[in-house]
Each structure stands twice: as C-alpha cells, then as structure tokens.
Design a binder for these strands. Sequence first.
DNA 1: ATGTGCATGTAACTGGTTACATGATTCG
DNA 2: CGAATCATGTAACCAGTTACATGCACAT
Lengths: 187, 187
Amino acid sequence: VTIRYFILGFLNQKPMSGYDIKCFLDRFSWLMGSPSFGSLYPALHALLEDGLTTVTVVSREGKPPRKIHRITEMGRAVLQEWIDQLAASDSPLKTFIMYLVLAGNFSSAGLIGHLRHRRTQVADHHGALKQVAKTSDGENDLGQRLALGYGLAIAAAELAWLDSTLDRLPPHSLPTEVVQDDGALLR
Amino acid sequence: VTIRYFILGFLNQKPMSGYDIKCFLDRFSWLMGSPSFGSLYPALHALLEDGLTTVTVVSREGKPPRKIHRITEMGRAVLQEWIDQLAASDSPLKTFIMYLVLAGNFSSAGLIGHLRHRRTQVADHHGALKQVAKTSDGENDLGQRLALGYGLAIAAAELAWLDSTLDRLPPHSLPTEVVQDDGALLR
DNA sequence: ATGTGCATGTAACTGGTTACATGATTCG
DNA sequence: CGAATCATGTAACCAGTTACATGCACAT
C-alpha cells in the first residue's frame, strides 16, 4: 500500500487528477517505474474512502471531465506520520527515489537526515561488495566479477552524488541534529 | 516466471541446492534483491516437473540432507532459447543485472551485444532526462530537481562503466557480428 | 471513418512475500 | 537447555500488471 502514501505526497504539493499523477511519474519511470492505472485509480478511491482526500469534478467545455483530488487535514497528518516512521527503515532503491521525488514535503532537517541515512546504507553496501571482491578473488567466474564491478561503480557514483548534494543543499538552515553512526537522528 | 530461468542459468554453471542459490544471490541482494524461499523452492519444483533439471539427494553424516539440482540437456536448450529471445526486449535494471550475473552462460559476442544494447538504452534515458531538465528549468520544485540530478548522475556512471567494460572486455575474441543501432544482433 | 489523445474505471491474473511448520546439528 | 545455522517446504495473502470497457474530442 506504499503507493497510496506516495500519491498522498503528491497531492500535498498540489491538487491533481489521476491522469496528471501518471504523466508526472512517467517522466521518472526509468528510475523507479510508474504505476499503472490499474493500481493508481483504486489507490485514489481508497484515499477518498478513508477521508484523506476529497474529490472535485471539473467539467471543461469540449474536454473530458477531470476528477481533481485534494488532500485533507487528516491526510496531511497521516502523511506526516508515514514520513516519520519511514525514515528509520532500511529502504530499497525504489523507496529512496520516492522520498527524493517527495522532497518538497520534508523539513530541511528531515531531508538531510534522509540523505545521510541513505549515505550510510550505500557506504555499508559498498564496503560489503569490496569485501566479497577481496575474499573470493581470482577464481571468480565472469558473471560475478562483472556484477561486482557494476555494483561498486554504481555505489561509488551514488556516494559521490550524495556527498555533493549534502554539501550544496543546506546553505540556508544549518541542522542542529546529531547523526549517529547508524544514521538515526538524535535531538 | 522470470526467476525460473534465472535459476536455470545458475544450474548451468554448476549443480547446486536451493539453499546454495539463495546464499549466492544474497550477496547481490542490494543490486537486484534476493528471492525468498517461498518463491525459490516452488520454482525448483517446477523446473524438475518440466524435466529441465534432475535432483539428487545427498545425505551427509551429521548434516541435513541436501537436494542437488542438475540441469538436463533439455534444460540447456530451453535456457539458450530464453537468453536469445530476451536479448531483444527492453529490460529493466533488475533484468539487466540478472544477465550480468549469468554472463558465464553467454557467448562472448552475445555478452557484448547485451552490454551494447544496455548502453543505448541508458544513453536514451540520459538524453531524455536532460531534455526534461532543460524544458522545465528553474521553476521545478526541489523534489524534481533532486530526482533529476540523481538520475543523471547514476545514468552517467552506468554509461562510464559500460564503456570501460566494453573496452577491456574483448581482448581475446574480436566479434564478427554487426550490431545495429538498436543493439540487435545480425549474423 | 479511423485513429490518437484525454480521462476514468474494473476484473482476472500473477508473481512474489510473509509467516508458518518441520527437523537435525552445533555452539554457548 | 535454549539459540542459531543449515535445510526444506506450504499456504495465505498482497501489490501490482494486463487486458478490457467506456466515452468524448480533434485531426487526418
């Protein structure tokens, strides 16, 4: 049901129709895939039923009517809850990108915490891969060597991006939080 | 049912038990995820029923017995078919990495074709992202800018890896095939 | 008239996960 | 003695896709 909260995040930025959301997400489909209408519309209906959104039908002359979905106060509360709770978990790539796209919904500190969290995860992974490459050295088969090399290259690139982004991101608000080794936030 | 053929590819490299396969894949879990036993074992059973593998139970003193799965001649034929047919399609990241891990099953030319094919796909994507970044410039919200930047960085890194890999891969056998613009192989 | 883009929706299916059950062995 | 690792398996459940159905407007 991840997709529901994801949609909710979009509606928090501005009211949209299901079609709008789909078009928007299609631009990032390569990164994270784009949900099909078959999952998008039911998710929208569920949000409506739970009272997290409201719907306004807008009929325009000469165009099919569109159902504009708006987030409610309750929806905002639930979204906030989801974001907070999610910050702790080990998220796969797809979830991380979701977060990225929803960055507008984060507090500056929350976003930085998220990026730092991801950084430690990628760094761990990178280290683990190097370990594997070292231990089983030489007698590995071609596939393993290639996959290992690929993983290392991508992880290194992501680390570089995270570092440079973290560097130029907080020119406005310096965070007061302390970040532990494991990336968890202390207040 | 992608996972079945993927497993078949492993068994083509050497006979293994389900547990072995799982352990092996866990090392790459960050890249492509690792199937759960709940999908692994049924897949193995299906392969056995289709006659693509055979099973030998090996009971060792003081250890639980292991079921070693071996690919059959028929299995090899089916695997080859799958690989050939798959080379044409637009594959998502996960499938590409599967291919990479299974590189040992490819002919040298097939592997190079695969990498070139991926290269064109990533290049297309990279171009498309740059396009998006250019057209909707300036007034984008934070999330979009971040996701765009991330996508560009990762795509660029993958392109670099593909190029360097393609460069140092074929020192032995120069391919005689002609590769079309779309990456399809001609004989 | 035919097809393409906008716009919404439903039902069947599928691939996969989660959670559970089993059992033997080794380690603390 | 309980916990962890090895090793195999099943059943319930779920998220999401595919394929289909609908309808209007505009261009060819």
